[in-house]
Design a protein around this nucleic acid. Structure first.
Lengths: 205, 205
DNA sequence: TAAAAGAACGAACGGTCGTGCTATTTTACC
DNA sequence: GGTAAAATAGCACGACCGTTCGTTCTTTTA
C-alpha cells in the first residue's frame, strides 16, 4: 500500500530515513555513517547513497524528517485547541510527551548543538527551523495575551525563551538523571511561569 | 618557567590540552581527531598520542580540563562572596560571562549532549560532573534560604533546575540567534526567578 | 515480446581514522 | 662532555570514511 501510493523509490527513501532518524537520535547528524546506515537498513552503501547523492543531502533530509515528526507530534495537535493559554499548555504537554518518547536524543536539539559553531547548509537549516518554531511559540503566547489569560505587558519572546529553556532542561536532565524527576521540575517550572505571567495576581510591587 | 615548574612532559601535555580544548569546543569531544590535533599543535600524531595512550584518555583529559576551567571561572570567584543570594547571583553572573567568552561551544554542555545516549567512561564522567555541579548550585541556594533571602519552602533542586535551564537557553540562543538578546532573556528570567522565590512577596494565594 | 528505465549491487578509489613499533632526537644528570 | 633516559618523529597497519563506476536484476513501457 505504502509502496503503491508512494512508488518504490519514495518508499525506500522513507525506509532509509526511518533508520537514519533513529541513528541520528543517538549519534547525531555528524555521527551518521553511510556504511553503518546501509547495514542497518539492509542494503548496499551505493544503493543507499544513490537516494541522496551526498552525505550532506542525507543529513538535510533527516533534519527535515525530524522537524516534520516534531511538528506533527507537538504543534499540530495543539492547533486543534482554541487559541489562548490552553493551546500554550498543550504545546508544553505534547513537548514533554515528545521528550519522553524520544528520550535518548531529539534530532533537532542534537543538531542545534552540533552546528551552532560551524557554518554551511546544515547550520542554516537548523537556524531557520529553530527561529520558525520560536515564532510559533510567540504566536501562541500572543493569543493567550489577547485573551487576557496572560498579563498584557507580557513579552512573548521572553516567555517563549523561558519555556524553551525549560524544555532544554527537560531533555538534559532526562537523559542524565532520569525522566521522571526532569518532568516534575519542568512542569513545576512551567506552572510557576504561568502564575508569574498571570494577570489576576498583578499585585502592586 | 612553566617548563621548569611543570617539567617538559607536563608542559607539552598542557599545550596539547589547550589546543584540544579549543578544538572540542567547536567540534565536540567526538569530533576530536588525533591527526588534526597534532597538526594544530605542530607535532606528529605518534608524539602527541604517546601523551595519552588512547583517544578516550585524551577525551577524558579534555573533559577534566573543561571542568577545571569552568569551576575556576564560575565557581571559585563566587565562593569569595558570602553565603547566600549574593553568591547565587555571582554564579549566574559568572556563568553568563563564561558563556560570552566561550560563545561557540562549552565543552561540558557539548559533551553532555554527545554522551547522554551512550554508555562508557565518558558518559560516567559527564554525569558525575553534572551531578556535582548541580549539587553545588543546590548548596548555594540552600544558603540563601537559610539566610531568609529566599522563601523557606524553596525546593533547592527545583530552583537549581530552573537556573540551569536558563543557562541552557542562553547557550542555545546565543549560538543561534546572537548573544546579546540571549543574555537579556536569561537575566530577565533569572530576576523573575528571584522575585518568584522571594519571601517578602509571600502574598496569600 | 523487445526495448527502455529504474533500482540496487559489488568492487574499488583516495583519504583519514586510531593505534602500534622502531628509530632518532632532545633533554637531564654525573 | 659523555651517557642514560625521556620525548618525539617516522612509518606502517587494518579499518572505515564518503564517493564513483560499471554491472546486474527487476519493473515498466511501447
Amino acid at each position: 500500500m505504502t509502496t503503491a501510493t508512494l512508488g518504490k523509490r519514495a518508499a525506500t527513501r522513507e525506509l532509509i530515513l526511518d533508520h537514519a532518524y533513529d541513528m541520528a537520535r543517538r549519534d547525531g547528524l555528524e555521527g551518521l555513517s553511510i556504511g553503518a546506515l546501509a547495514q542497518d537498513v539492509g542494503m548496499s552503501k551505493s544503493g543507499l547513497f544513490a537516494h541522496f547523492g551526498s552525505r550532506e543531502e542525507l543529513q538535510l533530509a533527516v533534519l527535515e524528517t525530524g522537524q516534520l515528526r516534531f511538528l506533527q507530534r507537538v504543534k499540530w495537535p495543539a492547533l486543534k485547541l482554541p487559541r489562548g493559554l490552553s493551546r500554550v499548555r498543550a504545546i508544553v504537554t505534547n513537548w514533554v510527551a515528545w521528550a519522553n518518547e524520544y528520550q535518548s536524543g531529539c534530532v533537532l536539539l542534537t543538531a542545534a548543538s552540533e552546528y551552532d559553531g560551524r557554518q554551511g547548509a546544515l547550520r542554516d537549516v537548523v537556524i531557520k527551523q529553530q527561529a520558525g518554531w520560536r515564532q510559533e511559540m510567540c504566536r501562541a503566547i500572543g493569543h493567550a495575551v489577547e485573551n487576557g489569560e496572560l498579563r498584557d505587558d507580557t513579552d512573548a519572546s521572553q516567555l517563549a525563551f523561558e519555556i524553551y529553556a525549560l524544555m532544554l532542561g527537560l531533555h538534559h536532565d532526562a537523559a542524565l538523571f532520569g525522566f521522571d524527576e526532569a518532568r516534575r521540575h519542568t512542569l513545576a517550572g512551567f506552572e510557576r511561569l504561568v502564575t508569574s505571567y498571570s494577570p489576576q495576581r498583578r499585585a502592586a510591587p
